[in-house]
Measured scan of single mutants.
Amino acid sequence: EVPFKVVAQFPYKSDYEDDLNFEKDQEIIVTSVEDAEWYFGEYQDSNGDVIEGIFPKSFVAVQG
């Protein structure tokens, strides 16, 4: 069931425009499960802007 919160276990950096880049310990709200390997989610950056994109499930852990 979406949405749910995950926390980055590792930093994720990608050159693909659709990917969500983040640092370790970033909290991310997952709004869609793309497939067995990928989530789609969002978070607010330090400027208060909402950043969204896809990212690999293996880089995050589900909270709770």
Results as ranks from 00 to 15, higher is better:
residue 25 D to P: 02
residue 12 Y to M: 03
residue 59 F to C: 15
residue 37 E to H: 12
residue 5 K to H: 07
residue 10 F to I: 09
residue 45 D to Y: 04
residue 12 Y to F: 09
residue 6 V to N: 00
residue 62 V to H: 11
residue 58 S to P: 03
residue 58 S to R: 13
residue 23 E to I: 06
residue 51 I to Y: 13
residue 7 V to T: 09
residue 52 E to Q: 15
residue 41 G to L: 05
residue 47 N to G: 07
residue 5 K to T: 12
residue 26 Q to L: 02
residue 10 F to W: 12
residue 35 D to L: 08
residue 19 D to T: 14
residue 22 F to K: 00
residue 34 E to C: 15
residue 16 Y to N: 15
residue 41 G to W: 04
residue 27 E to L: 12
residue 55 F to C: 04
residue 64 G to L: 10
residue 30 V to F: 03
residue 46 S to E: 12
residue 44 Q to N: 08
residue 1 E to C: 15
residue 39 Y to W: 14
residue 57 K to E: 04
residue 48 G to E: 03
residue 46 S to P: 10
residue 15 D to V: 10
residue 44 Q to M: 14
residue 53 G to M: 03
residue 45 D to V: 08
residue 49 D to I: 13
residue 25 D to W: 11
residue 3 P to A: 04
residue 58 S to F: 08
residue 3 P to G: 05
residue 50 V to L: 12
residue 41 G to Y: 03
residue 47 N to P: 02
residue 13 K to P: 00
residue 29 I to W: 15
residue 4 F to K: 01
residue 19 D to Y: 14
residue 2 V to M: 08
residue 14 S to M: 03
residue 60 V to R: 00
residue 5 K to A: 06
residue 42 E to A: 10
residue 62 V to E: 09
residue 46 S to G: 10
residue 35 D to F: 08
residue 28 I to G: 01
residue 50 V to M: 13
residue 44 Q to R: 13
residue 9 Q to H: 08
residue 22 F to E: 00
residue 3 P to Q: 04
residue 43 Y to W: 05
residue 10 F to D: 03
residue 58 S to C: 15
residue 40 F to E: 01
residue 13 K to Q: 09
residue 44 Q to E: 12
residue 46 S to L: 11
residue 20 L to T: 00
residue 4 F to E: 00
residue 38 W to A: 03
residue 15 D to L: 11
residue 12 Y to H: 06
residue 43 Y to M: 06
residue 45 D to C: 10
residue 62 V to I: 13
residue 15 D to F: 10
residue 41 G to E: 00
residue 3 P to I: 05
residue 48 G to R: 03
residue 13 K to V: 10
residue 52 E to R: 15
residue 55 F to D: 02
residue 14 S to A: 04
residue 50 V to N: 07
residue 24 K to N: 04
residue 52 E to D: 09
residue 36 A to I: 09
residue 1 E to L: 13
residue 23 E to M: 07
residue 37 E to W: 13
residue 18 D to W: 15
residue 38 W to R: 10
residue 48 G to T: 02
residue 16 Y to V: 13
residue 39 Y to C: 05
residue 9 Q to P: 02
residue 39 Y to T: 00
residue 29 I to G: 01
residue 33 V to I: 14
residue 6 V to H: 00
residue 54 I to K: 15
residue 62 V to W: 11
residue 63 Q to G: 10
residue 30 V to R: 01
residue 12 Y to Q: 00
residue 59 F to P: 02
residue 55 F to Q: 00
residue 30 V to I: 04
residue 1 E to F: 14
residue 51 I to Q: 14
residue 44 Q to C: 13
residue 30 V to P: 01
residue 60 V to W: 04
residue 53 G to T: 01
residue 42 E to D: 03
residue 19 D to I: 08
residue 61 A to R: 13
residue 2 V to K: 06
residue 33 V to N: 09
residue 38 W to P: 00
residue 46 S to W: 09
residue 47 N to D: 07
residue 60 V to C: 06
residue 43 Y to A: 02
residue 63 Q to C: 14
residue 57 K to W: 06
residue 45 D to W: 05
residue 11 P to L: 06
residue 14 S to L: 03
residue 51 I to R: 14
residue 36 A to K: 09
residue 34 E to F: 15
residue 15 D to N: 13
residue 14 S to K: 03
residue 32 S to F: 09
residue 31 T to I: 09
residue 30 V to W: 02
residue 27 E to I: 15
residue 19 D to M: 14
residue 20 L to Q: 02
residue 35 D to P: 05
residue 63 Q to P: 13
residue 35 D to S: 14
residue 22 F to R: 01
residue 17 E to V: 13
residue 32 S to Q: 10
residue 27 E to P: 05
residue 35 D to T: 08
residue 63 Q to V: 15
residue 18 D to K: 15
residue 31 T to C: 08
residue 61 A to S: 13
residue 16 Y to R: 15
residue 47 N to W: 07
residue 50 V to I: 14
residue 63 Q to A: 13
residue 47 N to L: 07
residue 13 K to R: 12
residue 21 N to A: 08
residue 41 G to S: 02
residue 57 K to M: 10
residue 4 F to A: 01
residue 39 Y to H: 01
residue 4 F to M: 03
residue 22 F to P: 01
residue 40 F to S: 04
residue 63 Q to R: 10
residue 25 D to H: 10
residue 1 E to D: 11
residue 56 P to L: 04
residue 30 V to A: 02
residue 13 K to E: 06
residue 10 F to E: 07
residue 28 I to M: 04
residue 15 D to C: 15
residue 29 I to E: 05
residue 59 F to S: 07
residue 2 V to I: 11
residue 42 E to G: 11
residue 49 D to A: 12
residue 64 G to S: 11
residue 12 Y to P: 00
residue 24 K to S: 06
residue 13 K to Y: 13
residue 57 K to N: 06
residue 59 F to T: 08
residue 42 E to Y: 15
residue 41 G to H: 02
residue 50 V to P: 05
residue 62 V to S: 08
residue 45 D to Q: 08
residue 57 K to A: 12
residue 52 E to M: 14
residue 41 G to I: 04
residue 37 E to T: 09
residue 54 I to H: 15
residue 18 D to L: 14
residue 3 P to R: 07
residue 62 V to G: 08
residue 30 V to K: 01
residue 32 S to V: 07
residue 1 E to P: 11
residue 61 A to G: 07
residue 58 S to M: 08
residue 2 V to E: 02
residue 26 Q to E: 04
residue 30 V to Y: 03
residue 57 K to F: 09
residue 8 A to H: 02
residue 20 L to N: 00
residue 28 I to K: 01
residue 56 P to S: 03
residue 2 V to P: 11
residue 2 V to A: 07
residue 17 E to C: 15
residue 55 F to P: 04
residue 44 Q to Y: 11
residue 22 F to I: 01
residue 60 V to D: 03
residue 51 I to T: 06
residue 18 D to Y: 14
residue 58 S to I: 10
residue 54 I to D: 02
residue 25 D to K: 04
residue 44 Q to H: 10
residue 46 S to Q: 12
residue 14 S to I: 04
residue 12 Y to K: 00
residue 32 S to T: 05
residue 28 I to A: 01
residue 8 A to M: 03
residue 55 F to N: 02
residue 58 S to Q: 08
residue 21 N to L: 05
residue 32 S to R: 15
residue 9 Q to I: 15
residue 49 D to N: 14
residue 64 G to N: 11
residue 64 G to H: 11
residue 52 E to A: 15
residue 6 V to W: 03
residue 7 V to Q: 04
residue 39 Y to S: 00
residue 60 V to G: 02
residue 32 S to G: 12
residue 3 P to F: 06
residue 15 D to Y: 10
residue 62 V to Y: 13
residue 27 E to M: 10
residue 62 V to R: 12
residue 13 K to S: 09
residue 41 G to F: 06
residue 50 V to Q: 07
residue 23 E to V: 07
residue 7 V to K: 10
residue 32 S to K: 14
residue 27 E to V: 15
residue 37 E to D: 13
residue 64 G to R: 08
residue 32 S to A: 14
residue 19 D to G: 15
residue 21 N to H: 11
residue 52 E to K: 15
residue 49 D to M: 13
residue 43 Y to I: 06
residue 17 E to G: 10
residue 33 V to W: 07
residue 31 T to N: 05
residue 29 I to N: 06
residue 11 P to M: 09
residue 14 S to G: 08
residue 8 A to N: 00
residue 15 D to Q: 12
residue 27 E to T: 09
residue 52 E to S: 15
residue 16 Y to G: 14
residue 8 A to T: 03
residue 34 E to L: 15
residue 38 W to N: 09
residue 40 F to T: 05
residue 19 D to R: 15
residue 49 D to E: 10
residue 22 F to V: 02
residue 7 V to F: 08
residue 24 K to L: 07
residue 57 K to I: 09
residue 16 Y to T: 11
residue 63 Q to M: 14
residue 35 D to V: 06
residue 8 A to D: 00
residue 48 G to M: 05
residue 34 E to Q: 14
residue 58 S to T: 08
residue 33 V to H: 06
residue 33 V to K: 06
residue 7 V to L: 06
